[in-house]
Nucleic acid binder design. Sequence first.
DNA 1: ATTATAAATGCAACAATATTTCATTTACTA
DNA 2: TAGTAAATGAAATATTGTTGCATTTATAAT
Lengths: 146, 146
Amino acid sequence: MTHAKTTYQFEDLLDKHQLKKTAPRLRVLSMMYSKNTATSQPDLESVMHDIDRVTLYRILNVFEEKGIIHKVFDLNGTANYAICHSNCGAHKHHDEHVHFNCTNCKNVYCLNELTLPALNLPGGFKAEGFTLYASGLCSKCSKKAN
Amino acid sequence: MTHAKTTYQFEDLLDKHQLKKTAPRLRVLSMMYSKNTATSQPDLESVMHDIDRVTLYRILNVFEEKGIIHKVFDLNGTANYAICHSNCGAHKHHDEHVHFNCTNCKNVYCLNELTLPALNLPGGFKAEGFTLYASGLCSKCSKKAN
DNA sequence: ATTATAAATGCAACAATATTTCATTTACTA
DNA sequence: TAGTAAATGAAATATTGTTGCATTTATAAT
Ligand SMILES: [Mn+2]
Ligand SMILES: [Mn+2]
Ligand SMILES: [Zn+2]
Ligand SMILES: [Zn+2]
């Protein structure tokens, strides 16, 4: 669970990445840090209905470039965005963890604590990045189910 | 590498799944079986420009339902479609293999020969399906690069 | 072979997601 | 406080995917 963060810390974060401290950016940061699941683009849009769609796309893109968030696709191919926990930076993401799609509540969880087992690829294939997608029931939904 | 298949074999395949043998379906099958990489939806559309877009979507959907093909998303979230090699059937896919996205040629490879290492998830999470996405250089592109 | 029928296709309209361009506003610097 | 570059908002456009309906086609029955 992510520790709650103050506006000051979000402003620092923007400063650190040489991004101007604007209201839309602070709101996006605060929303994404308040959850322990990824945020879908449609969700983001409906919650931030007063921010222009284009602005949201631009914020997401620049945050991804800077290594603040990373993009995850759920089982339907919908874009979701999650906070980077490893030390990701501009043009160097290290989000090689498990992404869990709950088939019931549709939430997407970053399972940062799990490290992916090594994998030897067929001859010639040189892998740089990995992501393991898993689908099933999350802990909350499997608890409800029994 | 998939062995070349004849029209008769594609007709048999459609028969086996109780699908009518139509020209668009045979063309889609023949195209997808002729490659050892997944086919993106945009590619499919441009190659089969004389088949209606909606028909293509419907063919892809019914093939997926029947377990003939499976859908893969590439790094940009674009839908790609690949032949199922394991014995997939209606409503039961077994495509838990590695999907390799080449960052150079953009091809998506199904690495069926690799089995995914076991993985123990955090308490409560019950996984049903897995897919491991890897990105980097495919064998052809890494050969060219040196 | 002919016909009947259900399935598949094609077309038009629509919806959702994403990008480009440009005018206006805002944050930061000097 | 004024100047400037960056960010936002708004409109237009592009791409991807879905829905409804009329027409055509594959298959089975006669
Ligand atoms: Mn993640
Ligand atoms: Mn595959
Ligand atoms: Zn759940
Ligand atoms: Zn390649």
